[in-house]
Design a protein around this nucleic acid. Structure first.
Lengths: 208, 208
DNA sequence: ACGGTTATTTACTTCTCAGTATATGACCTA
DNA sequence: TAGGTCATATACTGAGAAGTAAATAACCGT
């Protein structure tokens, strides 16, 4: 067993940077929970700071302004979805197989703090600049999902005559999970995801 | 042809009450449009008043406070849905037939000002009291829809093993219309409604 | 003509909260 | 041990907007 290089009790440059990142993340986590619970406008940075035993100017040491904090939250949420969407796009299987996997991952993210923030945040809560970046990121995901739907239509595994509307309908059902999901409820995120996806894939009408 | 009773140029008590109601409605319409466009918090009553060529205290002559205005908006939206839900409940046809009609009407309302307001309004934007009334109204509708789903499961016209989750999934897809619908877009509200409902009823997987 | 009611205005108060100027301490390097 | 950087705190400014007090105009019934 090799001794690992001795860890100095004094932080070096790399340590300090890691610590800074961790503190930044802690602030984002505290903020996003409050945004989700009380709403962006009703969340004061004084309260967010106090919940971590610091004061407001400390927040401004890590972020330029409140808008940047909100944008970072939705960016993290969207990034999770994007990763799933990209992973799925390159996977094998029919269009429907890939869309099913995508929707399942999407649904699970909607039950997490940063995912919830994405659908609970209205465009107009962000500054003009952040708003266009927010929209661009959402559009990117929409396009990816739509492409999978189109693949499914092309290979015959998905029935739809309008990939755009179908994508909106699916996304709505999944996005809405963030509005009613209860972390302490009886169902796990995975059970909810499976049930939603099944409803969307099978439809309401029974199959003979 | 009978002469209708002569209309006096001076308003009587009934006229005045009607006028008051009309003005109240005009204020609600102006407010809801701004709420939908800019958000509740970003909408100042000064602006709403100015858009109708009056001043803020005039608003306070018709409403007790900003919260009451928002609540009235969502109440009107929810009332539209409730009416459709009740009309459909007493109609004939299988559970799926009735649910289809309900979803179609629901979707159309989601493209109207007051309907949009319902799903764009987060609970925490309302005062504690309005919030519980808001939730109660939504719960009422949810229960009605769920009952229709259960009817469909019972009569075999709907395939689902969890009426509650299925109802949430459908409601999400329909509610989300309010987030992306463009009144000046290429599709009418009815076309969108039909497409969404078809996707939900038929499912993504092709039927052989 | 006159007191009362309806509808609306001007001008003000008050509060919350984002964002900042500046001080302070801890710790690192030379 | 002295100067510099990092991290955080105290105490403040300023803007925006909800809500109100009080004046005023229009109009009604008597």
């Amino acid at each position: 067993m090799n001794a690992s290089p001795q860890k100095s009790p004094w932080p070096n440059a790399a340590d300090r940077e890691r610590e800074r990142g961790e503190k930044r993340n802690a602030l984002l986590s505290a903020a996003v929970r409050s945004f989700n619970e009380r709403g962006f406008h009703a969340t004061s940075l004084d309260d967010v700071a106090a919940s971590l035993n610091v004061t407001k100017p400390t927040i401004y040491y890590y972020f330029a302004n409140k808008d940047e904090i909100l944008f970072e939250c939705v960016r993290l949420g969207l990034d999770g979805i994007r990763q799933i969407a990209e992973a799925v796009e390159n996977a094998g299987g029919s269009g429907l197989d890939r869309l099913t996997a995508l929707m399942r991952g999407y649904a699970v993210i909607m039950t997490k703090d940063f995912g919830m923030c994405v659908t609970r945040t209205a465009d107009h809560e962000l500054s003009e600049e952040s708003r266009s970046r927010f929209r661009a990121l959402k559009r990117e995901i929409d396009i990816t999902v739509r492409r999978v739907v189109e693949d499914g239509i092309a290979d015959g595994s998905i029935a739809s005559d309008d990939a755009r509307l179908t994508t909106f309908t699916l996304a709505g059902a999944l996005n809405w999970i963030a509005r009613w999901y209860e972390p302490n409820g009886p169902l796990t995120a995975e059970q909810i995801a499976d049930s939603c996806v099944k409803t969307l894939v099978q439809g309401l009408a029974p199959r003979s």
